[in-house]
Computed example of a mutant assay.
Amino acid sequence: QLTPAQRQLVEILRALTGDAKVIAFDEPTSSLSEHEVDALFALIRRLRDQGVAVVYVSHRMQEIFQLADRIAVLRDGALAGVQDAATTSEGDLVRLMVGRDLSAMFTRERVATDRLVLDVRAVTTDHVTGIDLRIHAGEVVGLAGLIGAGRSELALALAGDQPLRSGTVTLDGRTLRSGHPGDAIRAGLGLAPEERKA
């Protein structure tokens, strides 16, 4: 059984077999670790240097700017514009994507309140150790880390899908039972997992 990252690498290697003149990469880094992404980018640059034309599709602007010589932007199925990567900015690309300037459209306001919604105390599972989190109403908290660091496993544990070895998860003052997703759902905790197809 291959991991998503391994399947992605197998597909990339399959595309490289033969005498390809053009290779299209469609969101190739979606399941790769930072180290694997670096190796992929080195491979793409080597292919470019060997005269292979590369089409690189990604919603990650940083990747586009790292690799591209020219950036083509599509909007509603039509070509909105082509920009030289060295002389364009992320703002220029966003304007092409949406058809207008968004700088005045969105303002960031602090809406978090003092009401504690999720209180995670010393949560330990088979994959994470001693996790403490306090999340207030109106607040967005991001969980960051490399693949295998425990991000998804923590989310599954909070939702009751993976049992806790120790610690507590309290939602709006109600302590959830470990390993009982139904309790979490009834208490108001939803989960949009990484693997949404299954």
Rank of each mutant, 00 (worst) to 15 (best):
Q1R: 14
Q1E: 12
L2C: 06
T3L: 10
T3M: 07
T3V: 04
Q6D: 07
E11Y: 02
A15K: 01
L16M: 13
T17Y: 00
T17K: 00
T17G: 00
D19L: 00
A20Y: 00
V22W: 03
D26T: 00
E27C: 01
E27Q: 06
P28S: 04
S30V: 05
S30T: 13
S33Y: 01
H35N: 12
D38R: 12
L43H: 03
L43F: 03
L43W: 04
R45N: 12
L47N: 09
D49W: 02
G51D: 05
V52I: 15
V52C: 13
V54G: 02
V57D: 04
S58Q: 04
H59K: 08
H59S: 06
R60N: 14
M61Q: 10
I64W: 07
L67A: 09
A68D: 06
A68S: 15
D69C: 02
A72I: 05
V73H: 07
V73C: 08
L74I: 14
R75D: 00
G77I: 00
G77M: 01
A78W: 00
A80Y: 00
G81S: 09
G81A: 09
G81M: 06
V82I: 15
V82Q: 08
Q83S: 14
T87F: 05
T87G: 03
T88S: 15
E90H: 05
D92F: 09
D92E: 14
V94I: 15
M97P: 01
G99M: 06
R100M: 04
F106I: 13
R110Q: 13
V111L: 14
V111P: 01
A112Y: 02
L116V: 15
L116T: 10
L116K: 08
V120A: 02
V120N: 01
R121S: 07
T124E: 05
H127Y: 15
L133H: 11
R134I: 04
A137Y: 04
G138T: 13
G138S: 13
E139K: 11
V140C: 12
V140S: 07
G150K: 14
R151H: 11
R151L: 11
A155L: 15
A155V: 12
A157F: 09
L158M: 10
A159D: 07
G160R: 11
G160K: 12
G160C: 10
G160L: 11
Q162G: 02
Q162M: 08
Q162L: 15
Q162K: 13
S166W: 03
G167E: 03
L171S: 09
R174S: 08
R174D: 07
S178W: 04
S178H: 09
G179M: 02
G179F: 00
P181E: 11
P181K: 10
D183V: 02
I185Y: 00
R186N: 12
A187V: 11
L189S: 06
P193F: 12
E194C: 09
E195I: 10
E195A: 12
K197I: 10
